[in-house]
């Protein structure tokens, strides 16, 4: 084999590569598509977790929708007000201040056991569920799942699986939200088959951690910490912020002043004072009358 063959091969291949390179360079100029520079800037403001809490396929899709004026600026729960402020600066509109929301598990049925392993507290179990660990499956078994309560948290952690922020975990059979990590994207709320997860404003002091709409006697039989709709909290509330709807106490947060009186009278101890705050935050002392 003579040396020329090698040289031709190198030249031809090099030439081909160069040729294609030039074609590509020319094509990138010819086929250049004007993209709005604001799109990249918007993308930078967003957390990039693609949690889907805004209702779009991901952060990129949301940024595009904002650019096209199809989506409101404050829809990113994860980025919060910081992202909203930056984005409104880019888009040249005024930011709306959105209160930070966090997920709240409306169930107090944490199971407690005595030293010989008998259940003494929490949501009663009506049967042993041996299927795979998935609330959506478990909730279909035996009519309403393995718990005697039709409304409470099943505790198989479907919410834990969908949470992209590692902010919700099952503790003693009931999901618990880590409010520091929760960004309020609402994925757990959507996926929960029991609809036991709701959203509250971050820093809310008084919450009713029960979801049971069953009649008081039924709730009392199925859980040691279920709202029986007795109405003591309603009576003691100085601002009429509590109503009993479908055997369940509900707080109207526009009236609630976080005095904490309701928590002191609840016979089931399920009205929690400052359950969703950080431990570091000061807890307002209830005014004992």
């Amino acid at each position: 084999m003579d040396i020329m063959a090698i040289v031709t091969a190198i030249l031809i291949l090099g030439g081909l590569g160069l040729g294609f390179g030039l074609v590509l360079a020319a094509a990138s100029k010819v086929f250049y598509v004007e993209t709005d520079s604001r799109l990249d800037q918007l993308n930078e403001c967003l957390p990039g977790a693609n949690c889907g809490g805004c209702g779009y396929a991901g952060c990129g899709a949301y940024a595009e929708a904002v650019l096209n004026g199809e989506a409101p600026i404050g829809a990113c729960a994860s980025g919060g007000n910081e992202a909203a402020a930056k984005m409104s600066e880019i888009m040249g509109v005024k930011a709306e201040v959105v209160a930070r929301k966090v997920a709240l598990v409306k169930c107090s049925g944490q199971k407690t056991y005595n030293e010989v392993g008998e259940q003494i507290g929490g949501a009663k179990v009506k049967g042993i569920y041996e299927g795979f660990k998935e609330c959506r499956a478990a909730s279909k078994v035996g009519g309403s799942g393995p718990l005697a309560c039709k409304y409470g948290c099943l505790g198989y952690g479907t919410c834990t699986k969908v949470c992209k922020y590692d902010a919700i975990h099952v503790v003693d059979g009931v999901a618990k939200v880590d409010v520091d990590k929760c960004v309020g994207c609402g994925m757990c709320m959507i996926v929960c088959p029991r609809k036991v997860i709701g959203m509250v404003e971050y820093g809310t002091d008084v919450i009713i951690a029960c979801n049971s709409n069953a009649k008081g006697a039924v709730t009392a039989r199925s859980c040691t910490a279920g709202c029986i709709g007795c109405g003591l909290c309603k009576k003691i509330c100085p601002n009429d912020a509590i109503t009993i709807e479908k055997n369940l106490a509900v707080i109207d947060y526009s009236k609630c002043v976080s005095c904490g009186l309701c928590a002191t009278v609840c016979p089931k101890h399920l009205i929690a004072d400052a359950k969703i705050r950080n431990d570091s935050d000061p807890i307002p002392a209830p005014n004992k009358v």
């Binding site: 031709t8 031809i12 291949l13 590569g17 598509v33």
Partner: peptide, 28 residues
């Protein structure tokens, strides 16, 4: 040019550039 033995390498080159051009073309 009797460069049949360079087929594989040059085909890879052709395909890679082709896909890039097609992508730009479609985008536009």
């Amino acid at each position: 040019l009797n460069l049949g033995y360079m087929q594989t390498v040059s085909f890879i080159l052709v395909i890679a550039s082709l896909v890039q051009v097609v992508e730009m073309f479609l985008k536009k």
